[in-house]
């Protein structure tokens, strides 16, 4: 075991190309997925917070419920859609990075919507009224309020990234674990460990641990900042 750990550290420090390729796939797929879900996430959260329309509360609870959908179920759903005989089979997307991105968008969107919506809802109602009475239209008022909750917003982005970079179920089912193409950190760990090749698994696990540790530290710091409201003085 000690031997495997030493070997893992050597792989990391020596810059083993296969290893860092796998890390690259993880980051590329998750960053693209996060970027794609960010704008719709902001828009849906703002709509749910400020617009009044029938079915709004249902939509809110739906997004909250989607937070707890297992990644492997998301993977299964997209698998059925994208498989040869599925409704979108003609697109030939199964076992591509695009399919992995699609799954991760579905996983990150509910987190962004739920967290940003909560932040906007908790905002003092005077904030919205102040922007409106100072002449801001609905769009500018929304942007001003998003800026007002910027720490919570960043926290939502970090939480969403943390979830999708660490998920294995959807990446495995939709990517297919193809070396040099769709094999990412989590699917590689699963595979290498099942083959008994622990060193690479440990090395990638360390990368993931370090990442999730720093993301959580950042999240913790941001949540502290976002609660730092000198407003009570009023």
């Amino acid at each position: 075991m000690t031997e495997a750990i030493i070997q893992a550290l050597q792989m990391l420090l020596a810059g083993d190309p296969t290893l860092w390729d796998i890390v690259g796939v993880s980051f590329r797929v998750s960053l693209v997925a996060l970027t794609i879900s960010l704008v719709p996430g902001l828009a849906i959260a703002a709509l749910l917070a400020f617009a009044r329309f029938p079915g709004r509360r249902l939509a809110v609870s739906l997004f909250n419920a989607m937070l707890s959908i297992p990644a492997v179920v998301v993977g299964l759903t997209f698998y059925l859609l994208l498989s040869r005989h599925g409704p979108l089979g003609e697109w030939r997307l199964l076992f591509t990075q695009t399919a992995m991105v699609a799954g991760q968008v579905a996983l990150s969107l509910p987190i962004l919507v739920a967290m940003i919506h909560t932040a906007l809802q908790e905002l003092d109602p005077r904030a919205w009224e102040t922007t409106r009475t100072l002449g801001a239209g609905a769009l500018r008022a929304t942007l001003i309020l998003l800026r007002e909750v910027r720490f919570a917003l960043l926290a939502a982005v970090i939480a969403a990234f943390g979830r999708i970079i660490a998920e294995v179920g959807s990446a495995m089912m939709l990517g297919g674990n193809i070396l040099g193409y769709t094999r990412n950190i989590t699917t590689a760990i699963a595979l290498e460990t099942s083959k008994g090749a622990y060193a690479q698994g440990i090395a990638l696990g360390l990368v993931l641990l370090l990442l999730s540790f720093s993301l959580n530290a950042g999240l913790h710091w941001l949540q502290g900042r976002s609660r730092l409201q000198p407003e009570y003085l009023a």
């Binding site: 005077r126 102040t130 910027r150």
Partner: peptide, 12 residues
């Protein structure tokens, strides 16, 4: 018309 709250809201 511009309305000023009893306790005006201060943006961060």
């Amino acid at each position: 018309v511009t309305y000023i709250h009893q306790h005006p809201f201060m943006f961060r």
